[in-house]
Simulated scan of single mutants.
Amino acid sequence: MQRFEAALFDMDGTLVDSTGAVEAVWTEVASVHGLDVGEILAVAHGMRASDTIRRFLPAHQVDDAVSALEAQEIATAEGTLPIPGALAYVAGLRERGVPVAVVTSASRPLAEARLRAVGLPEPDVLVTAGDVLHGKPAPDGYLLAAERLGVDPRGCCVFEDAEAGVHAGLSSGATVIVVGGWDSPATLGLRRIRDYEELLLDPASDPLAP
């Protein structure tokens, strides 16, 4: 079994459950701009808000739309819940001295608000939307996280729940574990966990076990 040097986590859908808030604010965006919310949600998960909005709105409307979206998301961050077992699992990693990074398509203020809402302390490294030139599915975020942790990305274990993030993790050279039910050709052959309680109940199955 491969021994990993660090754990790199996506945030939304992987560490925190923000589905309700995310869908509500995108529904508002669609309503304001006369867009189809179904089309937006089909591509928004795991992507930076700015990258998603650019697909649907003219360039001169993007900045204002992104600012309004982020303000609404931060205002509803208190409704965020942890993915089952996430708090205990991450705490266990840090107790064992395993470096932990969060690599998210959210802005830094939103990421900090959601992590704070569920009681997750800021990780050793937090890479957010503004830290990279290219968001997921590009590997930039995971490569930057590995660099800041001082580890080889090929020795990292990436936890992801969405198509864009799976591609980003794989392209970085890391080993990707799928959290939850996302299924696509990109996930074929990848290890999958329902949530972190699965790893807590069976420590021998933990990919980052000592």
Score class of each variant (00 low, 15 high):
Q2F: 11
Q2A: 11
R3H: 15
E5F: 15
E5P: 08
A7T: 04
L8H: 02
D10S: 11
M11Y: 02
G13Y: 03
D17P: 10
S18I: 10
T19V: 03
A21G: 08
A24D: 03
T27A: 11
T27P: 10
T27Q: 11
V29A: 08
H33V: 03
G34A: 01
I40W: 05
H45T: 08
G46Y: 00
M47L: 12
T52G: 08
R54V: 00
R55I: 12
F56K: 09
A65C: 15
A68G: 12
A68S: 10
E78F: 00
T80C: 02
L81T: 14
I83R: 06
A86H: 00
Y89L: 03
A91I: 09
E95T: 07
V98R: 02
V100F: 02
V100P: 07
A101F: 05
V102Y: 03
A113E: 11
A113S: 11
R114F: 06
L115T: 06
R116F: 11
A117L: 13
G119Y: 15
L120I: 15
V125F: 10
G130N: 12
G130D: 14
K136E: 04
P139C: 11
G141P: 09
L144D: 06
A146I: 02
A146V: 00
P153N: 11
R154W: 05
G155K: 00
V158L: 14
G165N: 15
L170C: 10
S171C: 06
T175H: 01
V176G: 04
G180Q: 12
G181R: 12
W182S: 10
D183S: 13
A186V: 11
A186D: 02
T187D: 00
G189R: 08
R191V: 13
R192F: 04
R192L: 09
D195Q: 13
Y196H: 09
E197A: 09
E198P: 02
L199E: 05
L199Y: 01
L201C: 13
S205G: 14
